[in-house]
Design a protein around this nucleic acid. Structure first.
Lengths: 190, 190
DNA sequence: ATAACCTGCGACATCAATGATGCAACTATC
DNA sequence: GATAGTTGCATCATTGATGTCGCAGGTTAT
């Protein structure tokens, strides 16, 4: 039993290495071949096919993995029981940490996997509830369409996650500040 | 000469039809085949190959076309000679009109074509000069990193352009409002 | 009617990516 | 040292996308 566990652990380590390499390669070039992914992972192409029956299976595994990490990131912030502003910041930090390393896989989850899509839809709902609570608490403007606010939030997270070498805390602070106050001094067109 | 002009006009109409179809198809599925693009354009696959020597050539033509429209959109707003706030709004409206229909091709231009990349870099420079002027005019906060402000602006344009069926004027007004004032009521973390 | 031009269709060659398989070699466990 | 599990390598078949060509038919202007 000990041997089995050790050996399976080896295989799982390989799987993880491949997933990381796939994220790195596919984020730069979504049409990259299995060969290129294998090379980036430092393994033979046949090994990739041994671990993932097909290209779709590999992509699905990436979506599943990233979605799990995504859900964990949101849960860890306890957005339902924490004051809205704190929760917003905490969710942002946690999600950014994941998305900086799994940006491609997270975007993938929206379309590819049906189970992953369900989780994303669930999180979207929780996000909207958080925004609704923030609105009631007077943190968010009442004259802003909640759906638009959420889209802006997602867009900012996507943009911030492109900064690969930056500190997640600093990114999150700047992101939330921009989301709430914008980049202007106050005057507007309306 | 008259006949030649009429016939060439036919060919150019076909080219334009193919470009539009390619934008529609590739924006949904970037790995779609020439066959699918031809089908969407209502022409035979061989006709596509007659007009565009290769897939890369088609993609480059899309990038070139979208880049031209993009530059026109920016120029039409005269961002150098118009008051910053007005220019910001006008540029936003014009660019949104183009980007709603050519989102895929415009993203493409950043990497594919070297000439298109040059135009994009040029426009990015003009955008940063506009932001600098806005900052001096007191429209933009002085404590916000200009590069970050530009990235936020681009991200918002990208997000707003996803609303396919909306009015560009309304989108632009909401976009600029959000960019300048954010979605919050005033209090922040810092 | 004629000529120029364009298109659709069918056929063909090519090529790269995918996926499967057998075998030898390596490593860790017992 | 024997064993089980894993990997690398070489190899092969398959498939789908790409690109080319020739021909027949249709349109438009002269």
């Amino acid at each position: 039993m000990t041997s089995t566990r050790a050996l399976r652990s080896d295989a799982e380590r390989t799987v993880h290495t491949i997933l990381e390499a796939a994220e790195r390669v596919l984020s730069r070039n979504p049409t990259a071949s299995m060969e290129q992914i294998a090379e980036a992972a430092g393994v033979a192409r046949t090994t990739v096919h041994r671990r993932f029956a097909s290209r779709d299976a590999l992509v699905a595994a990436m979506a599943s993995w990233a979605t799990r990490r995504f859900a964990e990131a949101v849960n860890a912030a306890h957005p339902e029981t924490t004051p809205p502003l704190i929760a917003l910041y905490q969710v942002t930090v946690n999600v950014l940490r994941v998305k900086i390393d799994w940006s491609f896989a997270m975007n993938l989850a929206l379309t590819a996997d049906r189970e992953a899509a369900h989780v994303h839809a669930d999180i979207e709902g929780r996000c909207e509830r958080l925004f609704a609570k923030a609105r009631e608490a007077g943190v968010l403007r009442a004259d802003v369409d909640p759906a638009w606010a959420r889209r802006v939030y997602y867009a900012l997270i996507h943009e911030a996650a492109q900064s690969r070498d930056a500190d997640a805390d600093a990114l999150a602070a700047r992101l939330v500040d921009t989301l709430l106050r914008g980049v202007g001094t106050g005057q507007s067109l309306t």
